[in-house]
Write a protein that binds this DNA or RNA. Structure first.
Length: 590
RNA sequence: CGGGGUGUAGCGCAGCUUGGUAGCGCGCAGCGUUCGGGACGCUGAGGUCCCGGGUUCGAGUCCCGGCACCCCGACCA
């Protein structure tokens, strides 16, 4: 990848026309968190006047939060530009016809917002923009000479999530930076993928997010290669398997484990029925037969759009929905109903693979030894059931969840599980979209070839919420400098003192003239209120101009995360603050 | 979509069991006193008690039906 010239060094110049006075700020801080907010970050989002809910999963940025969102966008933009991506913009309303080319008009129906125009033409509020980019690409790009290219935009996405949650963590409308790479071949796609991966590492680091890249499932997207950038925090919705020993990290949906070596067993005894009255669960069997869960086979009868499938797992393992969906190539899996049980010859609670009339998938962790399995007869199980001998063991696949303590598939080390927030993802699709949409270019050899395609997303608002969630203390937010709504928070104390007001006004005017972003608390409030709000809002530097400090011919300077304040002589205060801000900007731009 | 919870002033909540003038704290407005870690006094404004039916002389409270929001799960590039 070509690295462009380093982003310009930040300069202190007049870049910001905003003159924020807290006396007139739209959006007030809250002493108490609204009852709807559960997570600490969600509470701070609301208390610090960053954003306000409008409806479930729909938020308004207040002025403070809007500035944060714009700074996050700027960082993302700089890093996309740095790898040569070109910014453009596609509409929010997208016509049905393009979605129908890939089949996603139907596939995405349950989670999308739709509308019709007055002629009855159908549109989707953009869920994402692969189809639109591919449509443009097939018109704009005719020759291999025009490749490779990466385009991106910041645009609102609509997703009718069944359950929005935790403030901005999961919402129904949000701005995403989505980038799309178009290449002539697989090698080109790999270069673009690597370039975006690198851009993401830098982007999240600059935003103050400690994001790790993990292997992820591609879901309904097609393609095989995908990574998510995850920030580990308890509010996260995803579960991530992490090796304590090596670099292996994977989303639970995809995480594998090294299976233990098992010694081949000799000829096992014949399968025999045993009475297990009322024992319809693995737990009940453990109790009544006094054997560990691993001694049993769990057989799940599942319903898919392609028919009923029986999945056989060891009794101590859970089925992994994502792995199953991918294996079976179906969008949805539910438990079988009574009719399905009857058709397959299974009895609920006593289902086993022996004699079952259904497609049987055997999990890779099922060993070739004797197990206790359901007998498909009420109150009866079979002992000494051996896979391959007593039932078909032809279709084997890894369809189980990993557990803490499992062996790492890469190095054999120990896996742990942690919760994470997915702040970004990158997908490599090969020619999946180009094939569906007939998007080709004329290659050097004169033949038409399909585009190799990748897409790369970062949700801005989720990023902001994750920053709050991971940068705070018991008083409030501690904004990383690069994304703080303002750089310096000036507190006048008290504002009805003529000298204090005049000094604070002059200092603020000087700082603003030099381009420092200042939030000026000029309210006639008590010290406690103002300091508490300053800590809550979490601007990186606080400057207090007070009667007390002016007696020393000084102002007081304090970092949000430091406990000690420093007295700075009044006559050098502006220069000193400007210098500190300059250095903080330089550090934040790296 | 399944399970649970909550809807009463801007925010946090009480009142509902046992029907009878709608309350408390914070915030907000005015005046005064304060002024370095969410000050104090006085005065005041602010309510379709989520919505619609029903029972009743009378419903915030009881009954029926809806809706919204939150949490857990399912689902989810």
């Amino acid at each position: 990848m070509r690295l462009r010239e380093r982003a310009k060094r930040p300069r202190l110049r007049f870049t910001d026309n905003s003159r924020m006075r807290m006396s007139g700020m739209f959006g007030r801080t809250l002493r108490e968190p609204p009852s709807e907010a559960q997570s600490p970050g969600h509470q701070l989002l609301l208390r610090a006047a960053i954003a306000r809910p409008l409806a479930a999963g729909l938020y308004t940025w207040l002025p403070l939060g809007f500035r944060v969102a714009k700074k996050v966008e700027r960082i993302i933009r700089e890093e996309q530009d740095r790898i040569g991506a070109q910014e453009m913009e596609m509409p929010v309303l997208t016509p049905a016809e393009y979605w129908k080319e890939t089949g996603r008009w139907e596939a995405l129906e349950p989670i999308t917002f739709r509308t019709k125009d007055h002629n009855g033409r159908e549109y989707m509020v953009s869920y994402t923009h692969e189809e639109m980019v591919m449509h443009h690409a097939r018109n704009e790009i005719q020759s291999y000479r025009q490749l490779p290219v990466i385009v991106y935009h910041f645009q609102s996405k609509g997703r009718d999530e069944a359950r929005p949650r935790a403030g901005l963590l999961r919402v129904r409308e949000f701005v995403m930076k989505d980038a799309y790479s178009i290449d002539a071949d697989q090698a080109g796609l790999q270069r673009a993928y690597a370039a975006e991966h690198g851009a993401y590492v830098r982007t999240f680091q600059r935003m103050g997010l400690n994001a790790i890249s993990v292997e992820s499932d591609t879901g309904a997207m097609g393609g095989d290669l995908a990574h998510e950038f995850q920030v580990l925090t308890d509010v996260g919705e995803d579960t991530i398997a992490i090796c304590e020993n090596c670099d292996y990290k994977a989303n639970m949906e995809k995480a594998r484990r090294k299976l233990p070596d098992t010694a081949p067993v000799g000829e096992a005894a014949k399968a025999v029925p045993i009475a297990t009255p009322g024992a319809e669960s693995i737990e009940a069997l453990e109790a009544s037969l006094q054997r560990p869960a691993s001694a049993f086979l769990k057989t799940l009868l599942l319903k898919t759009p392609k028919g009923v499938v029986a999945v056989v797992l060891p009794g101590d393992r859970e089925a992994n929905d994502a792995k199953l969906r991918k294996l079976l190539d179906v969008p949805q899996i539910t438990f079988a109903n009574d009719a399905d049980f009857a058709a397959a010859g299974g009895v609920a609670g006593f289902v086993g693979p022996v004699g079952l009339r259904a497609r049987v998938v055997v999990d890779s962790s099922v060993e070739r030894r004797g197990y206790v399995a359901g007998a498909n007869t009420k109150d009866t199980h079979l002992d000494n059931v051996v896979p391959g001998r007593d039932f078909a063991d032809a279709e084997r696949a890894d369809v189980h969840d990993v557990k803490p303590g499992d062996a790492c598939p890469a190095c054999g080390g120990t896996l742990t599980l942690a919760r994470g927030v997915e702040v970004g993802n990158i997908f490599s699709f090969d020619t999946y979209y180009a094939d569906k949409m007939g998007a080709t270019y004329l290659a050097e050899d004169g033949t038409r070839k399909p585009f190799y395609f990748g897409s790369y997303g970062i949700g801005v608002s989720r990023g902001v919420q994750t920053i709050i969630e991971t940068n705070r203390d018991d008083r409030g937010i501690i904004w990383p400098f690069a994304v703080a709504p303002y750089e310096v928070h000036v507190v006048g104390l008290p504002m009805n003192d003529e000298t204090v007001r005049a000094t604070a006004d002059a200092l603020v005017a000087t700082l603003e003239e030099k381009g420092v972003e200042v939030l000026f608390d000029d309210r006639d409030e008590s010290a406690g209120v103002k300091f508490a709000d300053a800590d809550l809002i979490g601007i990186p530097f606080r400057v207090t101009v007070s009667k007390r400090s002016l007696k020393e011919k000084s102002v007081e300077l304090k970092g949000r995360s430091s406990t000690e304040a420093e007295l700075v002589p009044q006559d050098v205060a502006a220069d000193r603050i400007i210098d500190i801000v300059r250095r903080a900007r330089e550090a934040a731009a790296r």
